[in-house]
């Protein structure tokens, strides 16, 4: 099976504007002839994939060390790109990573090599686990269960298409960025700036207040209003917070 390693035809921005269920689905632009996967990869990556295939075969045959090696290699990427951004809490993301590993260990016998490595398959498992986690416990996160359900479906399509690890990771990061930018774009620009300065860039209260031209205690109120507005923009119920 061939793998997609190019991001040329994919436009998350365009997709997001339409808020289609397939937020991560690649845009199928004019069909362009695609060279076979192996021809588009550099020799180093090809050698890496071959080693990965052998490792996966050993793991499928019940070699625990091989399976542990796979988890050690790809687990941190799943945590960083899939679980943490979507679950919004380190503790919850770590629990989800543990559950993902348990599921992978149980199901790895069903894994089929698709030419692009193990990561896209692991990503689908992690997405499903994250979705279950988000559904089971209501949390304040950037993503809601519907977003995650769409992302999980998209991850399955990516697996079918044989997306390369790097592109999967890039898509996940991009999805989080777009989601955040869209939500910030929906609120007052001054509120968005307060969130960017104080929350995302982690500036001190004094610095953020200086940038906004207000006193620090006014900044606290501005930030409070900003986060309430963002929560509303994300579709959350802000009745909990006065």
């Amino acid at each position: 099976m061939s793998c997609v390693v190019s991001n040329v035809a994919w436009s998350p921005l365009r997709l997001h504007a339409h808020a289609r269920p397939s937020i991560l689905r690649p845009v199928t632009a004019a069909p362009t002839p695609v060279a076979p996967f192996e021809q588009r990869l550099d020799p180093a990556r090809l050698a890496e994939l071959e080693a990965e295939r052998l490792l996966a075969e050993r793991a499928k045959a019940g070699d625990r060390r091989a399976l542990a090696e796979i988890l050690r290699k790809f687990g941190p990427i799943l945590y960083r790109s899939v679980l943490l951004p979507r679950l919004g809490s380190e503790a919850v993301a770590q629990d989800a990573l543990g559950d993902t590993y348990v599921r992978v260990v149980e199901k790895f016998a069903q894994f089929e090599w698709r030419g692009c490595g193990v990561y896209p398959w692991l990503r689908v498992v992690a997405m499903r686990i994250a979705l279950d986690s988000l559904r089971s416990r209501k949390r304040e996160t950037l993503f809601d269960p519907d977003d995650l359900a769409r992302a999980a479906d998209a991850a399955e399509r990516d697996l079918d298409q044989g997306l390369d690890l790097k592109l999967c990771e890039e898509r996940d990061r991009e999805a989080a960025k777009i989601k955040l930018d869209t939500a910030l774009g929906a609120i007052n620009s001054r509120y968005a700036l307060a969130i960017r300065l104080r929350v995302l860039e982690e500036k001190s209260r004094e610095e953020a207040a200086g940038s906004l031209g207000v006193t620090v205690s006014t900044l606290d109120v501005v930030l409070h209003r900003a986060l309430k507005a963002l929560k509303k923009a994300l579709g959350g119920d802000d009745s909990e917070s006065p």
């Binding site: 979507r86 996160t141 960025k177 955040l180 929350v199 995302l200 982690e202 963002l230």
Partner: peptide
């Protein structure tokens, strides 16, 4: 909690 989620998301 929401602020923390934003921070780790990006």
């Amino acid at each position: 909690e929401l602020a923390s989620a934003l921070r780790v998301a990006t």
